[in-house]
Computed example of a mutant assay.
Amino acid sequence: MTTTPEILRYAAFTDLPTGGNPAGVVLDASGLDDAAMQRIAAEVDFAETAFVTGRDGDAYALRYFSPIAEVPFCGHATVATAVALAERSATGALRFATPVGPIEIVTTRGADGITAAFTSVDTDLAEFDAPTLERTLDLLGLDAGALSSVLPPRLAFAGNWHPVLVVDDARAFDGFAFDPAEARAFMDEQGWPATITVLHPIASADAGGPRRFEARNVFPVGRIAEDPATGSAAAAVGGYLRAIGAVVPPALVVIEQGRHVGRPGELVVEIPPSGGITVSGRAVPIPDDVG
């Protein structure tokens, strides 16, 4: 008889268990096969559940499952796993062996708790072809005229490919809507395993602080339609901004996300001159009596 391992629940990129992005975490999944991990992820019913399946040298082997399928990488579940490990041992540097390659993550303890910062794999950028961009806009009910004139739509990679659209108009950003089933079918057709990322600029670096964006991330899986806080997308956005010359590295960008689904959170994005993007945030346990 197989014993079900302990399943932890954390909210990432927030200080509150009711904010940010919930993730399941299984710290000992060494006895689980793929079907068991998929079943647990469906039962947890968060955007992703992370499974530590063993050790690969000095790295923890980590896999990620949404309620419907395995995904190559998940930033918020990586942060949640790192914080869970640090709470049970000590803070410091960790390495995760993930399906997209090695991920370096550093945990630090402050007065308000533990922060985790992961560095993504190297980034990449690709152009939309015109028909795919048109279909993406149609899916979201967005007019091409709502898109930024200086931050063009692109496909950005930092472990997962994310379409990135920047919408200048606040009403268009707040008001776009989509059919989850149609979005899921379209994203599967395009081979986009994670989210469609829509950004709205809310503060420039000239205002005296880091450049800030608000994000909405389309991610229809199970009962979820829109992701509250997406670490992999934040890393992809960092790579996107660097590649199009919208920031001068080293640069700091803050992404607010989750307001539209009632779970606000914040992701801090550090953009170096080259290589992976560092995304950091807090994670806190979700009590059994909190949804």
Rank of each mutant, 00 (worst) to 15 (best):
E87S: 01
I103Q: 06
T18N: 12
R242E: 09
A69E: 14
E134A: 15
P5M: 05
R263Y: 12
T115F: 00
V279Q: 11
P201T: 06
V198L: 03
E270K: 08
V237A: 07
V284K: 10
S120D: 10
A207F: 03
T195N: 14
S66Y: 09
F13L: 09
A215N: 04
A177F: 01
A205L: 09
D28G: 00
A146T: 14
R282T: 12
V290K: 12
V221K: 07
V198Q: 00
T4C: 00
G101Q: 14
A12G: 07
G191P: 01
E134I: 09
G245W: 10
R88Y: 02
R154D: 07
A84R: 08
T4M: 02
A181E: 15
L199V: 07
P153W: 00
D28E: 04
P163W: 10
V26G: 00
V26Q: 00
E270M: 03
G75D: 02
P272N: 12
P131F: 14
N160M: 09
P180R: 05
S89F: 09
E70V: 05
A126S: 14
P131D: 14
V290A: 08
W161F: 12
A80H: 03
L94Y: 15
S30Y: 01
I286H: 08
T119N: 02
V237S: 05
A215R: 04
A29I: 03
S232F: 13
L133V: 03
A172I: 05
V71Q: 09
D227Y: 12
A90G: 01
G239R: 06
F73I: 13
A47W: 10
G113M: 12
V268R: 15
E214Q: 11
T278D: 07
R223H: 07
R171V: 15
A116G: 08
I196Q: 08
G238N: 04
G145Q: 10
P99V: 10
I196P: 02
F46L: 06
T91Q: 01
G19S: 08
V248N: 13
F128M: 10
I7K: 05
L155I: 14
V279A: 09
L139N: 08
V83S: 04
D179W: 07
D168H: 10
G275M: 11
F96K: 12
V166L: 00
P72M: 07
R154N: 06
P5L: 08
V279C: 10
F118R: 03
E43I: 13
L85H: 05
V106R: 12
I114T: 01
A41H: 04
L140S: 01
R39N: 03
R211D: 02
I224L: 15
A126Q: 13
D288P: 04
A80M: 02
V167A: 10
D112S: 11
Y64M: 06
D289H: 15
R171E: 15
G24Q: 06
A42D: 05
I40V: 03
G54K: 08
V167T: 07
D169I: 01
A283V: 09
E182V: 13
F46C: 07
A111T: 11
G92T: 05
D143T: 05
L85F: 05
T98D: 07
M1A: 12
F118T: 04
R9P: 00
A126I: 04
E214S: 12
G110I: 00
Q38L: 13
V79Y: 10
L140D: 01
A126K: 13
G92C: 06
D288Y: 12
A41S: 10
L27E: 03
